[in-house]
């Protein structure tokens, strides 16, 4: 075995463990450099984050982002009046995508023609009788937040679909109606097929 010929052979440390000794060698400078940077980062970060709260925490950032989203949504909702919603109901693209969302999310209860159907629990959206109000803004509220009567099963769709898709579904529903048509509000509205053949044994 060739021994080192260097005059500056590193010093051998005096301690011995299990017959193993170690040299006193310098660490690579680049390694030490990253180590020093890490220490400096720790001090700066500790002061900025934990001591002086200069950096927002993840929770604060999340709340700020949520507030921003809520504000934007509120602004969008405020700008939506019945006239604007009726205008949307003439947008062919919105109706098309609303139809697709309707088929996936709403059809299971309200039926393929919006009129409900035998055995379907949903109310008709095609007739001129509304349970919770027939103005576009009132229908929008039911789609967004669900039925005010939580025992009926119409869930809030806004958390699942988001406001843009809810608006598209509304456009699709409104495309089955005329602006200015007369409607009645009936709090006891039932699926059409049940009115025709009253179910026995219902409460």
């Amino acid at each position: 075995m060739s021994k080192s010929t260097e005059e500056n052979t590193p010093e051998l440390r005096p301690h011995v463990y299990d017959g193993i000794q170690e040299y006193d060698q310098k660490l690579p400078n680049w390694w030490l450099f990253t180590f020093y940077i890490a220490i400096a980062f720790f001090v700066i970060y500790w002061l900025a984050y934990y001591q002086f709260q200069l950096i927002p925490t993840d929770e604060e950032r999340m709340h700020a982002a949520m507030a921003q989203i809520d504000a934007a949504r509120l602004k969008q909702l405020e700008s939506l009046d019945d006239a604007k919603l009726w205008a949307m109901a003439k947008d062919v693209k919105a109706i098309e995508s609303g139809k697709a969302t309707y088929a996936a999310s709403c059809m299971a209860c309200h039926g393929p023609t919006l009129a409900g159907g035998p055995g379907l629990p949903g109310l008709s959206l095609a007739d001129k009788v509304w349970k919770h109000g027939g103005q576009p803004s009132e229908i929008l509220k039911v789609i967004r937040k669900g039925s005010p009567d939580v025992s009926k099963g119409m869930p809030a769709w806004e958390p699942q679909l988001g406001l843009p898709r809810v608006l598209e579904v509304l456009a699709y529903v409104l495309s089955h109606h005329q602006e200015g048509e007369t409607f009645t509000v009936d709090p006891n509205d039932k699926p059409t097929w049940m009115a025709a053949a009253p179910a026995t044994g219902a409460q």
Binding site: A108, P121, G146, V150, S151, K152, G153, P155, A156, P159, Q160, K190, P191, M194, A199, T200, G201, A202
Partner: peptide
Amino acid sequence: LTGAPYFVNNGEIRNQFQ
């Protein structure tokens, strides 16, 4: 689906899924 685990309407029990 979000909401109650089941609904009882019109003499029928209903469960809603996604």
